[in-house]
Protein backbone atom coordinates (compact mmCIF):
# COMPACT_ATOMS: atom_id res chain seq x y z
CA UNK A 1 0.00 0.00 0.00
CA UNK A 2 1.04 3.61 -0.41
CA UNK A 3 2.81 5.64 2.19
CA UNK A 4 -0.31 7.73 2.83
CA UNK A 5 -2.36 4.72 3.79
CA UNK A 6 0.40 3.43 6.04
CA UNK A 7 0.79 6.75 7.81
CA UNK A 8 -2.94 7.12 8.24
CA UNK A 9 -3.15 3.62 9.65
CA UNK A 10 -0.24 4.30 11.96
CA UNK A 11 -1.99 7.35 13.34
CA UNK A 12 -5.46 5.84 13.52
CA UNK A 13 -4.50 2.49 14.99
CA UNK A 14 -3.59 3.71 18.52
CA UNK A 15 -6.77 5.74 18.73
CA UNK A 16 -8.94 2.78 17.74
CA UNK A 17 -7.07 0.69 20.24
CA UNK A 18 -7.60 3.16 23.07
CA UNK A 19 -11.24 3.67 22.22
CA UNK A 20 -11.83 -0.08 22.09
CA UNK A 21 -10.08 -0.65 25.40
CA UNK A 22 -12.10 2.19 26.92
CA UNK A 23 -15.31 0.58 25.72
CA UNK A 24 -14.22 -2.74 27.21
CA UNK A 25 -13.19 -1.25 30.54
CA UNK A 26 -16.31 0.87 31.00
CA UNK A 27 -18.74 -1.81 29.84
CA UNK A 28 -20.58 -1.82 33.15
CA UNK A 29 -21.05 1.96 33.22
CA UNK A 30 -21.53 3.21 29.68
CA UNK A 31 -22.77 1.57 26.49
CA UNK A 32 -20.33 -1.10 25.47
CA UNK A 33 -18.66 -4.13 26.87
CA UNK A 34 -16.36 -6.95 25.93
CA UNK A 35 -17.93 -7.76 22.61
CA UNK A 36 -18.31 -4.23 21.37
CA UNK A 37 -14.85 -3.13 22.43
CA UNK A 38 -13.33 -6.32 21.05
CA UNK A 39 -15.03 -5.72 17.73
CA UNK A 40 -13.68 -2.16 17.63
CA UNK A 41 -10.11 -3.26 18.38
CA UNK A 42 -10.40 -6.04 15.81
CA UNK A 43 -11.52 -3.44 13.27
CA UNK A 44 -8.37 -1.49 14.06
CA UNK A 45 -6.35 -4.63 13.43
CA UNK A 46 -8.19 -5.04 10.12
CA UNK A 47 -6.98 -1.54 9.28
CA UNK A 48 -3.45 -2.73 9.95
CA UNK A 49 -4.05 -5.63 7.58
CA UNK A 50 -5.24 -3.30 4.85
CA UNK A 51 -2.28 -0.95 5.26
CA UNK A 52 0.57 -3.42 5.55
CA UNK A 53 -0.79 -6.39 3.64
CA UNK A 54 -1.57 -9.75 5.18
CA UNK A 55 1.82 -11.48 4.51
CA UNK A 56 3.62 -8.81 6.53
CA UNK A 57 1.20 -9.10 9.44
CA UNK A 58 1.26 -12.88 9.15
CA UNK A 59 5.01 -12.80 9.50
CA UNK A 60 4.94 -10.62 12.58
CA UNK A 61 1.96 -11.99 14.45
CA UNK A 62 1.67 -15.74 14.72
CA UNK A 63 -1.86 -17.09 14.32
CA UNK A 64 -1.05 -19.86 16.80
CA UNK A 65 -0.25 -17.29 19.48
CA UNK A 66 -3.49 -15.45 18.79
CA UNK A 67 -5.43 -18.70 19.05
CA UNK A 68 -3.75 -19.34 22.40
CA UNK A 69 -4.82 -15.90 23.59
CA UNK A 70 -8.35 -16.68 22.51
CA UNK A 71 -8.29 -19.93 24.45
CA UNK A 72 -6.97 -18.08 27.49
CA UNK A 73 -9.78 -15.53 27.26
CA UNK A 74 -12.39 -18.27 27.06
CA UNK A 75 -10.78 -20.13 29.94
CA UNK A 76 -10.76 -16.92 31.98
CA UNK A 77 -14.45 -16.37 31.30
CA UNK A 78 -15.50 -19.87 32.32
CA UNK A 79 -13.14 -19.73 35.31
CA UNK A 80 -14.90 -16.65 36.63
CA UNK A 81 -18.14 -18.58 36.30
CA UNK A 82 -16.63 -21.50 38.20
CA UNK A 83 -15.30 -19.13 40.88
CA UNK A 84 -18.90 -18.08 41.32
CA UNK A 85 -19.67 -21.74 41.91
CA UNK A 86 -16.99 -21.96 44.58
CA UNK A 87 -17.55 -18.64 46.39
CA UNK A 88 -21.16 -17.95 45.59
CA UNK A 89 -22.53 -21.51 45.51
CA UNK A 90 -23.92 -21.22 41.95
CA UNK A 91 -22.41 -21.12 38.51
CA UNK A 92 -22.19 -17.51 37.29
CA UNK A 93 -22.99 -16.29 40.76
CA UNK A 94 -21.98 -12.65 41.09
CA UNK A 95 -20.01 -13.16 44.30
CA UNK A 96 -18.23 -9.80 44.20
CA UNK A 97 -21.34 -7.63 43.86
CA UNK A 98 -22.08 -5.69 47.00
CA UNK A 99 -19.21 -7.28 48.89
CA UNK A 100 -17.44 -3.97 49.40
CA UNK A 101 -14.11 -5.22 48.12
CA UNK A 102 -12.89 -5.24 44.51
CA UNK A 103 -15.62 -3.88 42.23
CA UNK A 104 -17.95 -4.37 45.15
CA UNK A 105 -19.67 -1.03 45.67
CA UNK A 106 -23.36 -0.84 44.98
CA UNK A 107 -24.48 2.33 43.22
CA UNK A 108 -27.37 4.22 44.72
CA UNK A 109 -30.70 3.35 43.16
CA UNK A 110 -31.79 5.66 40.42
CA UNK A 111 -29.78 8.12 38.39
CA UNK A 112 -26.19 8.08 39.58
CA UNK A 113 -22.81 9.22 38.44
CA UNK A 114 -20.28 6.73 37.18
CA UNK A 115 -18.48 4.75 39.87
CA UNK A 116 -15.86 2.50 38.36
CA UNK A 117 -15.64 0.32 41.43
CA UNK A 118 -19.04 -1.37 40.85
CA UNK A 119 -20.39 -4.34 39.03
CA UNK A 120 -18.93 -7.31 40.89
CA UNK A 121 -17.48 -9.83 38.46
CA UNK A 122 -18.87 -8.03 35.41
CA UNK A 123 -15.76 -5.93 34.66
CA UNK A 124 -13.59 -9.04 34.94
CA UNK A 125 -15.89 -10.91 32.57
CA UNK A 126 -15.82 -7.95 30.21
CA UNK A 127 -12.06 -8.09 30.22
CA UNK A 128 -11.91 -11.84 29.57
CA UNK A 129 -14.48 -11.61 26.77
CA UNK A 130 -12.64 -8.61 25.35
CA UNK A 131 -9.36 -10.54 25.09
CA UNK A 132 -11.22 -13.45 23.56
CA UNK A 133 -13.09 -11.41 20.99
CA UNK A 134 -10.06 -9.37 19.92
CA UNK A 135 -7.94 -12.46 19.41
CA UNK A 136 -10.76 -14.49 17.84
CA UNK A 137 -11.95 -11.95 15.30
CA UNK A 138 -8.40 -10.92 14.43
CA UNK A 139 -7.24 -14.48 13.84
CA UNK A 140 -10.26 -15.17 11.61
CA UNK A 141 -9.65 -12.13 9.50
CA UNK A 142 -5.86 -12.65 9.43
CA UNK A 143 -5.99 -16.25 8.29
CA UNK A 144 -8.66 -15.58 5.68
CA UNK A 145 -6.81 -12.55 4.31
CA UNK A 146 -3.55 -14.45 4.13
CA UNK A 147 -5.20 -17.39 2.39
CA UNK A 148 -6.83 -15.14 -0.19
CA UNK A 149 -3.57 -13.37 -0.93
CA UNK A 150 -1.43 -16.40 -1.78
CA UNK A 151 -1.68 -18.75 -4.74
CA UNK A 152 -0.63 -22.11 -3.34
CA UNK A 153 -2.34 -23.36 -0.21
CA UNK A 154 -0.42 -26.46 0.70
Amino acid sequence: MTKIVKTTANILFPFTMIFGLYVIAHGHLTPGGGFQGGAIVASGCALLLVAYGSPWVFDHIKDKRLATFESLGAIGFITIGLLGLIFGAVFFGNFLAGSGSLFGTTPATGSTLADFNTGGVLPLMNFAVGVKVIAGLFVIILVMAYASSIKEWS
Binding site: T68, A74, I78
Partner: peptide, 18 residues
Protein backbone atom coordinates in the same frame (compact mmCIF):
# COMPACT_ATOMS: atom_id res chain seq x y z
CA UNK B 1 -23.96 -28.87 40.93
CA UNK B 2 -23.98 -31.76 38.46
CA UNK B 3 -26.21 -30.09 35.81
CA UNK B 4 -23.68 -27.33 35.37
CA UNK B 5 -20.68 -29.63 35.72
CA UNK B 6 -22.02 -31.74 32.85
CA UNK B 7 -21.78 -28.66 30.64
CA UNK B 8 -18.73 -27.02 32.17
CA UNK B 9 -16.42 -30.04 32.08
CA UNK B 10 -16.42 -30.64 28.31
CA UNK B 11 -16.59 -26.90 27.63
CA UNK B 12 -13.57 -26.07 29.76
CA UNK B 13 -11.71 -29.02 28.27
CA UNK B 14 -12.56 -27.80 24.78
CA UNK B 15 -11.03 -24.45 25.67
CA UNK B 16 -8.01 -26.21 27.16
CA UNK B 17 -7.59 -28.58 24.21
CA UNK B 18 -5.41 -26.29 22.04
Amino acid sequence: QSPVLIIATPLLSAFLMP
